[in-house]
């Protein structure tokens, strides 16, 4: 096994009395493509948001190369810059063009010189096939195109790991394919990815590990081929059956 990038240890999260995540434990290693699947409300998205510090975990540890990111005084901005995030609702900056969206993080956070930032942005926009649209504004392009730009924006920071929060759930059916295609290409290039998804095909064929969550705990996890075709837990079997109907 290669070196772990993220180790989640005993992570819990409560909203008031409602415990959404209970004692979550798992590890993401370099090159892993992990799918997190499960019914709505099982805590998948909350887990991802806790990892990217958009939600503050109630207890537990998140180790990034062995260092706990939840302790006081940790440089959260630098951590976030290296842990990319792709959102369900894209969250492209509405006041910037496609190109500027992909340059902003580099220039503002990493202080990359303008010309270099532009070259890097163009490289990744080309990777997701959005070069022709670099002068468009987010409201002028389709959902699938927005999500591809959002992926390029995250890639332009040259992150060590990319988190995807249901990247295709807000898309029209005919646009799901183009986004999954880009993600598949990334996986093949060896990008470390953690993907919350309802796309069982992606979980089975593209990712190499699957985590199944139910009721705020990890019910089952393992190599995707094994877990997806032959789940041990009764709950997961029922979940997959519902999806295949």
């Amino acid at each position: 096994m290669s070196e772990p990038i993220l180790e989640i240890r005993h992570l819990s999260k409560s909203f008031g009395n409602n415990e959404v995540l209970k004692d979550i434990d798992f590890t993401v290693s370099k090159g892993d493509v992990t799918s997190i699947i499960g019914a709505s409300g099982s805590g998948k998205s909350t887990l991802l948001r806790c990892i990217n510090l958009l939600e503050t975990a109630t207890s537990g540890e998140i180790l990034y190369h062995g260092e706990n990111v939840l302790r006081g005084g940790f440089n959260q901005s630098a951590y976030r810059a290296k842990v990319g995030m792709v959102f369900q609702s894209f969250n492209l900056f509405n006041n910037m063009t496609v190109l500027k969206n992909c340059m902003a993080g580099q220039q503002i956070v990493e202080k990359v010189p303008k010309e270099e930032a532009k070259q890097r942005a163009l490289y990744y926009l080309d990777k997701v096939g959005m070069t022709p649209y670099l002068n468009a504004r987010p409201h002028q392009i389709s959902g699938g195109q927005k999500q591809r730009v959002a992926i390029a924006r995250a890639l332009a920071m040259e992150p060590e790991i990319l988190l995807f929060d249901e990247p295709t759930s807000a898309l029209d059916p005919e646009m799901v394919g183009e986004v999954l295609e880009v993600m598949k290409k990334l996986a093949e290039d060896g990008m470390t990815m953690l993907v919350v998804t309802h796309e069982m095909g992606f979980a089975k064929d593209v990712s190499n590990r699957v985590v199944y969550m139910a009721g705020g705990i990890i019910e089952e996890e393992g190599p995707s081929a094994e877990v997806m075709s032959n789940p041990k837990s009764q709950k997961m079997r029922e979940f997959l059956e519902r999806f295949l109907q």
């Binding site: 990217n52 510090l53 958009l54 901005s77 630098a78 951590y79 976030r80 810059a81 290296k82 990319g84 995030m85 959102f87 609702s89 894209f90 969250n91 492209l92 900056f93 509405n94 902003a104 993080g105 503002i108 956070v109 990493e110 924006r153 995250a154 920071m157």
Partner: peptide
């Protein structure tokens, strides 16, 4: 609120 989250996820601080 997604705009703020998008910026934070890139590592921007409050002022940026």
């Amino acid at each position: 609120a997604g705009q703020t989250e998008g910026a934070k996820a890139l590592g921007m601080n409050h002022f940026q």
